[in-house]
């Protein structure tokens, strides 16, 4: 079979709604784009464990403490599932983690912002996990079987994350005046990174078309952002939180939300390593891998240091 015929087969399969599995023929670009995508997703889960994990020792009360441990644990679990999904495309996990640590593979910008208050944990759990659920539910319908399977499980667990995030927000916003102030302050800071979560507007995105046709990215950045706004803005207003985008409005006819664009220059700055927390997060990740290396070496005979006589 010629490559053109194979490509036609491949595209017809996706058009029929059939999934692509690891052994299938696939265009090199499909493979490389998927690896990049899943690897970045896995990186994000792993790096996302850091800002929330730092609050575990400080969590107020049994319920919050145990729920936060369980949540961060799930995130590490999601990284595990996603790296495994990416490995089915032929890239070993140690290579991917190496690339994360040396800064050559990206992760979500949101984890390069500080979580300096307890209310930040509420916002990450509610706004960011909510955005992740929107994104992952859509990506689940994508064409690559192992990624979809991992995402089904992940989305199920994210529902618990969203609930604990929302519960935290409601507890704080209905709490003491200090709690309410902390909640609003954190919300105002997280609004803009949340607006950037789904990426630049579609008109700036260059290769969305083929990614959509191949079922790698079933919906565009703007479409995903719009779904999030529909779900979250009414709830934000109901809770009495003040949205820092004073120009935010809903189009009466189309029902679409119009937002003020966040600072996309900042977005690209953070992506390229110059965000408020990039250096610290990566330094911590490197430290972790250095601290754990003795254990991995010990159980891997060919990497063990030579035995003393």
């Amino acid at each position: 079979m010629t490559d053109e015929a194979r490509l036609a087969d491949f595209e017809a399969r996706i058009a029929r709604g059939e999934k692509i599995e690891p052994g299938d023929w696939m265009p090199e670009r499909y493979r490389s784009q998927l690896i990049r995508l899943i690897q970045q997703h896995a990186n994000s889960e792993l790096m996302g464990a850091l800002p929330e994990g730092q609050w575990i020792p400080y969590a107020p009360g049994f319920k919050r403490k145990m729920a936060l441990i369980a949540k961060v644990q799930d995130e590490v679990g999601h990284a595990q599932l996603l790296y495994r999904a990416a490995e089915t495309l032929g890239k070993p996990r140690h290579e991917m983690i190496e690339e994360l640590i040396n800064g050559s593979s990206k992760y979500s910008n949101v984890f390069n912002y500080p979580c300096d208050t307890w209310a930040d944990i509420a916002m990450v759990g509610w706004l960011i996990d909510g955005a992740a659920i929107v994104n992952q539910t859509i990506m689940q319908t994508g064409s690559y079987g192992p990624y979809g399977r991992a995402l089904r499980r992940i989305t199920y667990e994210e529902a618990f994350h969203l609930k604990q995030g929302y519960d935290l927000v409601v507890t704080l916003i209905t709490g003491t005046s200090a709690q309410r102030a902390m909640c609003q302050e954190a919300f105002s800071r997280w609004w803009w990174p949340t607006m950037m979560f789904f990426g630049p507007p579609d008109k700036q995105s260059v290769h969305t078309e083929v990614l959509q046709r191949w079922g790698i990215k079933p919906k565009t950045n703007d479409e995903q952002r719009q779904i999030w706004l529909q779900k979250f803005v009414p709830k934000i207003l109901e809770l009495g939180l003040e949205i820092p985008d004073t120009a935010l409005r809903r189009d009466a006819e189309s029902g679409e939300w119009h937002i003020t664009q966040p600072d996309w220059n900042e977005f690209f700055r953070v992506i390229n390593g110059d965000g408020p927390m990039n250096r610290e997060r990566l330094a911590l990740r490197r430290l972790i891998y250095d601290e754990g290396s003795w254990l991995r070496r010990a159980l891997e005979p060919h990497l063990a240091l030579p035995k003393a006589a």
């Binding site: 990049r36 995508l37 970045q40 997703h41 994000s44 990206k106 992760y107 979500s108 910008n109 949101v110 992740a132 994104n135 990506m139 105002s188 800071r189 803009w192 950037m196 979560f197 789904f198 990426g199 630049p200 507007p201 008109k203 700036q204 995105s205 260059v206 290769h207 990215k217 950045n221 820092p244 985008d245 004073t246 003020t260 664009q261 966040p262 600072d263 996309w264 220059n265 900042e266 977005f267 690209f268 992506i271």
Partner: peptide, 21 residues
């Protein structure tokens, strides 16, 4: 995914002056 960070566009949009730093 997560804004597909490695898929950046080219032109930058106007920043809002009231964005927190």
């Amino acid at each position: 995914m997560y804004g597909d960070p490695a898929d950046p566009g080219s032109e930058a949009l106007e920043a809002r002056p009231d964005m927190p730093s």
